[in-house]
């Protein structure tokens, strides 16, 4: 498993970026792009999410001097991403073309099924939606999600398990025992 980011590492890069280091900006972008992208993907079509993620970083980097708690970069940029919804009504057809180019091996059935799953995730509550997208779309582990979002490991685990249980139920899939073992779904 990859090592999650440490708060000290995040804080150091934030302070370097606040002093104008391009390398630090690039590090922050690489590290937090999955988080920002997942938040936008939870509410916007795929190609639009990429564009919104770019916008979010542009906004965040322009305001970076206002961030006082350098270790809180993740929750801070996540809040900016949630506020930044961009223009509604992207061209779905053009977005699908982009989407297909990104996955040439995928057939039309896979695509339809993927869209259906994504649609189900999008209607989940925010905490479950974002955590599940970080896990299933961005491929991050629980500790990595906790480091990016600033949530405790326990909160991330609960969000993952409850979200996954809801997703399985909505898709008509069988529940996994380890997902319901330590959590009581309300």
């Amino acid at each position: 498993m990859r090592q999650p980011l440490s708060p000290l590492e995040i804080a150091r890069h934030v302070r370097d970026a606040q002093r104008g280091s391009q390398a630090a900006f690039a590090w922050l972008y690489r590290a937090f792009a999955p988080l920002v992208h997942a938040i936008h993907l939870g509410r916007a079509p795929h190609a639009h999410a990429e564009e919104l993620a770019q916008d979010t970083f542009a906004i965040a980097f322009a305001q970076l001097g206002q961030l006082r708690e350098a270790t809180q970069f993740g929750p801070w940029i996540a809040a900016i991403a949630r506020r930044h919804r961009g223009r509604i009504g992207a061209d779905e057809e053009s977005l699908r073309e982009n989407h297909d180019r990104a996955s040439p091996a995928a057939g039309p059935d896979d695509r339809a099924e993927a869209e259906r799953v994504l649609h189900v995730i999008r209607v989940l509550p925010q905490a479950y939606r974002e955590t599940l997208l970080l896990r299933l779309v961005e491929g991050l582990s629980g500790p990595e999600i906790a480091a990016l979002t600033g949530l405790t490991a326990a909160s991330v685990r609960v969000n993952l398990h409850r979200g996954m249980a809801k997703l399985r139920a909505a898709l008509g899939l069988a529940a996994a025992p380890e997902e319901t073992a330590d959590v009581h779904t309300p």
Partner: peptide, 16 residues
């Protein structure tokens, strides 16, 4: 299924 939507760093340059 969902891995196809993953953020691809090489296709998305860092904003200026």
């Amino acid at each position: 299924l969902l891995g196809r939507y993953r953020h691809v760093p090489s296709e998305a340059p860092m904003p200026k």
